[in-house]
């Protein structure tokens, strides 16, 4: 993270400086709270009884503690397990494939002795300046690539990203060319050089890009919404979304018909599902945060 800049001088602080620090800590404290509170409410709401939510609304700490929402989810666990399976599958497959693609391509466009490296870079970069937009893409994927209701629709479109390519290129460019040349002189072929010399030096770059890719796949619901019809192919985030739609529709119907829905804990169920879907991210977050900071920092320096 950000390292401490100048050590504060040991001179007497003036009043205005003190005021500045007070404002500084209070403001950052408030923003931090604003970023944290929704998560706390989410978790506490998921452990609150339906009755308490309906008559008292959400609160910071569960007023009537219960695990009934989680019990309900895991009473018929197949749906959740299936959605977890889909999410894990597309995340692992997409990340692995995307990582290989990104690394190889970044290596190629970094090779100064490759004549078409600028043309190739432009070929990729142009897609960030101009694209067909939602309609063309949708029609083309469905009518000509036949991706409707296929797992490919969840994996292929997100596999390659120009932003990640540029970040990876920065990592590759830190490898001295002399190393690659000497490997070649020693008789290693291009692939051998790449896999046994270059790749091991790109570990931190691969961790960074791999995590970005994995986060994108894990959080994706958009492609599922456009292309997936069968419920058993829903990834976790989209399953959560469709559950929200259903419970909100149910609540609307019930309130119009003046029926109480207290038998089914719809509110806490939604929150419990949200916790189940976000849990893995929050759990690994402390360990992977530094890679994201690195990636964001490199990405902001235009290449």
């Amino acid at each position: 993270m950000a390292t401490a800049k100048a050590k504060p001088m040991k001179i007497k602080n003036s009043t205005s400086t003190t005021v500045f620090y007070i404002i500084c800590y209070v403001l950052i404290g408030l923003i931090t709270l604003a970023c944290l509170l929704p998560f706390i409410m989410l978790v506490s709401g998921s452990f609150t009884s339906e009755h308490a939510i309906r008559f008292g609304g959400y609160s910071l700490l569960p007023r009537e503690f219960t695990t009934e929402a989680y019990q309900l989810i895991f009473k018929t666990p197949m749906a959740v397990i299936k959605a977890y399976g889909v999410s894990i599958f597309i995340t692992v497959a997409g990340t692995a494939a995307g990582l290989i693609l990104t690394t190889m391509t970044a290596y190629v466009i970094s090779r100064k002795d490759f004549k078409y490296r600028n043309a190739l870079s432009f070929f990729f970069y142009f897609t960030t300046l101009f694209n067909g937009g939602m309609v063309c893409t949708y029609i083309f994927y469905i009518q000509y690539l036949h991706l409707k209701d296929s797992y490919w629709a969840l994996i292929l479109p997100a596999m390659f990203n120009v932003f990640y390519l540029l970040i990876m290129r920065t990592f590759v460019s830190s490898i001295p060319m002399a190393l690659i040349e000497s490997a070649k002189i020693d008789g290693a072929g291009e692939f051998r050089t790449f896999f046994s010399i270059v790749l091991p030096l790109l570990k931190s770059g691969m961790a960074t890009i791999g995590l970005f890719l994995a986060l994108g796949y894990w959080n994706d619901w958009y492609n599922a919404m456009l292309y997936i019809n069968s419920e058993d192919k829903y990834p976790l985030q989209y399953m959560l979304y469709s559950l929200l739609q259903k419970t909100q529709a149910m609540a609307a119907i019930a309130s119009q018909a003046n029926v109480q829905l207290t038998d089914i804990p719809t509110n806490s169920l939604k929150l419990a599902m949200a916790v189940v879907a976000t849990g893995p991210i929050i759990l690994v977050y402390p360990f992977v945060q530094k890679y994201f900071v690195k990636g964001v920092t490199i990405g902001s320096v235009k290449g």
Binding site: M1, L36, L42, N219, W221, Q237, A277, Q289, F292
Partner: peptide
């Protein structure tokens, strides 16, 4: 701590 927490919302999906 504050920087970590302020960065956290980036990691969750818009569904949440």
């Amino acid at each position: 701590v504050s920087q970590s927490i302020i960065f956290l919302p980036y990691f969750i999906s818009w569904v949440i």
